[in-house]
Nucleic acid binder design. Structure first.
Lengths: 274, 274
DNA sequence: GGCGGCGATACCGCACGGGTATTGGTGGTG
DNA sequence: CACCACCAATACCCGTGCGGTATCGCCGCC
C-alpha cells in the first residue's frame, strides 16, 4: 500500500521508486500484485502518462488513512512505554497564543497533571501529527482546518479582520465587506500550502507562516483576512479593519477518537472550563 | 500486528496460533520481533498466564483501528470498482424502522439516487461494519452506540419508556423513575453482548435482538428501557410506561470521515431534510 | 519426583521481495 | 520516415524471511 500511494502521488513509477529507495521493476510488480489481489485496476497506464482510475482514487484516500493509523499505532505504543509518557499538544505557530498559554497554566495547576510538550507547526500540519500519532491533542481552527475523524470540543469563536499596510486607503473604514477585500488588485491574498506541501496557482505570494505573512503585508505586497485575536502580534506598520461578513473562526481542541489517556481527558476538560 | 492482536485477545499463544491457522513457534517469534522493532515489552509472560503490559494495551486498541482501516481500504476499493457501486447502509435490526423507511423512500425519489443496500445487524455491529468498510453509512443511537471516529448528523431525539409484561402492577402508572425500574427484582434488565460478542456478568437474561427481548418480556422474565418509537413493534401482551428521567436517545446518521462519495452525501442530506 | 502444559529455541525449506539487464511500445524530432 | 528518448513491463538471479517440525526449558501440580 505504501508503494501504491507513492506511485499514485507521483504518477510516475520511476520517481516513486526513487522516493521509496527501491528499483523500478519491483515497484511495478508490487502494484500489479496489489491489483491482482484486489481484482481491481488502479491505474490507467497511458503511453506517456499515468492516471488514477476511480477505484485508484478511493484506494489512495483510504490507504493514506490506513497507513497513518499503523504509524500512529507504533508511535503511541512506543510513547506509552517511555519512562515519562507526557502529552504532545500540536498547534499552528502563532495561532491562539493567548488561549494556549492560559490552557497550559490552568492544566499545570491541576493535581496529577502530566508534562505537556507543545509542538508548533505550519498550517495543515497539526491534523497530520494527530493522525499519525506524533501528537495526542491539538488546537485547530474551523473552518481553516479539517476536523474530520477527530473528536472535538469548541473553545472559542471570534470574528475575522483584514490586515492591511498602515496608511492604506481602507484603513480608516469602520468595516469592509469580504468581496471588497478579495478585489484589491495590488494587495492580493496570499497562497498557503496544501496538505501535500504544494501551493495552488494564483497571483498572491506564497507564505508558510504568520511571520512571513505580516512582513509581506507591512511591505505593501499582500493583505490577509485573519481571526481578530492575531492583532496582538501586529506592529505599528499594520492596520486592521473588521470584516463582518467573513466566516467566524472557532478554535477547537481535538483528539483522536478512542483516546483513553487520562492526561488528554484532563487537558480537554481544563480547556472547556477556561 | 494481526498476530499480536490475536495473542492479546486470547492471552494464550497456542489458541491464538490456532485461530490464525499457523503453528505456535512462528507466532512466538513474530511477537518477539514486533517487540524488538518497537523496543517495547508488550506482554508479561507469567509462568501460567499471559498479561498485557500498559504499552500492550495501547497497541491492542491502536492496532485494532489500524487493521480495520486497512480492511476498509481494501473493501471500499473493491466496491468502488464494482459495476454498480451502490451504498450499504447498516443499522440495528428493529431500530428506527419508521425513520429508515421514510429515508429510503425519500432518497429513492432523489434524482441520481444510487441503489441502497440495507444491512440489518445486531447491537454494536453497525459501528464495526462502518469501521472496516463493509458499510458506507449507518444509523446509530446515542448514547447506546459509540459514534467516536465518525462524522454524524442528528436526525431525531426521543424519550425512553419501560416495556413490561401486560398486567404488571406498574403498568397503570403515568410514569416510572429509572431507579424503580432497575430495582424490579423479578424482572431484571437483560444483558446485551459487548463489542467482542461476550456477555457481561449479571442476573438478567442474555439477549441478542429485540425479538428475543420482547418475547422474554411477554413471558414475564425481564423488562427493558427502550426508545418510545419501538412501541410500534409491541403486541397486546406488553405494557408501556414512560421513564422521564432515563437519558433521551438520539438517532444519528453516521459515515466515515473523508467520505467523498456523492451517494453518501446525498443520503445524509436527504436524512437531515426529513 | 514425575508429569503435563506452554512458550522459547533450533533447524530446515520454500516462496517472495528486491536487484540488474533487457525488451517493447509510443510519442517526439531532425 | 526513421531514429531516438522515455518509461513501464518482463526475464532471470539471489538472499532474506516466514512458516513448518522437532525439541528444549521452565514452572505448577498431583
Amino acid at each position: 500500500m505504501r508503494y501504491f500511494v507513492a506511485v499514485a502521488e507521483e504518477l510516475h513509477f520511476g520517481r516513486a521508486a526513487q522516493r521509496l529507495a527501491i528499483a523500478q521493476p519491483p515497484l511495478s510488480r508490487a502494484v500489479q500484485k496489489l491489483e491482482r489481489r484486489l481484482g481491481v485496476v488502479l491505474l490507467h497506464r497511458g503511453a506517456r502518462a499515468i492516471t488514477l482510475t476511480e477505484a485508484g482514487a478511493v484506494l489512495l484516500r483510504e490507504a493514506r488513512t490506513a497507513l497513518d493509523a499503523v504509524e500512529a499505532a507504533e508511535r503511541r505504543t512506543r510513547r506509552a512505554a517511555a519512562d515519562q509518557p507526557g502529552v504532545v499538544l500540536a498547534t499552528k505557530a502563532g495561532a491562539s497564543s493567548g488561549l494556549l498559554s492560559k490552557l497550559l497554566h490552568a492544566y499545570a495547576a491541576e493535581p496529577g497533571a502530566a508534562a505537556v510538550e507543545v509542538v508548533l507547526c505550519g498550517p495543515g500540519q497539526p491534523e497530520n501529527l494527530l493522525r499519525d500519532g506524533r501528537a495526542d491533542v491539538a488546537l485547530l481552527h474551523r473552518p481553516y482546518d479539517t476536523t474530520a475523524g477527530f473528536d472535538t470540543e469548541d473553545l472559542h469563536t471570534e470574528r475575522q479582520v483584514v490586515v492591511l499596510p498602515a496608511g492604506h486607503p481602507l484603513a480608516d473604514r469602520a468595516h469592509v465587506p469580504l468581496a471588497e477585500v478579495a478585489d484589491l488588485a495590488n494587495l492580493p491574498l496570499p497562497r498557503w500550502p496544501g496538505r501535500d506541501g504544494s501551493y495552488p496557482d494564483g497571483p498572491g505570494p506564497q507564505v508558510r507562516d504568520h511571520t512571513q505573512l505580516f512582513q509581506l503585508i507591512a511591505l505593501g505586497l499582500a493583505c490577509a483576512v485573519v481571526p481578530e485575536s492575531l492583532r496582538t502580534q501586529l506592529r505599528n506598520d499594520h492596520a486592521v479593519v473588521p470584516v463582518p461578513d467573513a466566516p467566524t473562526v472557532t478554535t477547537v481542541i481535538a483528539w483522536p477518537p478512542h483516546s483513553r489517556s487520562k492526561a488528554v481527558a484532563d487537558l480537554v476538560h481544563t480547556a472547556t472550563r477556561l
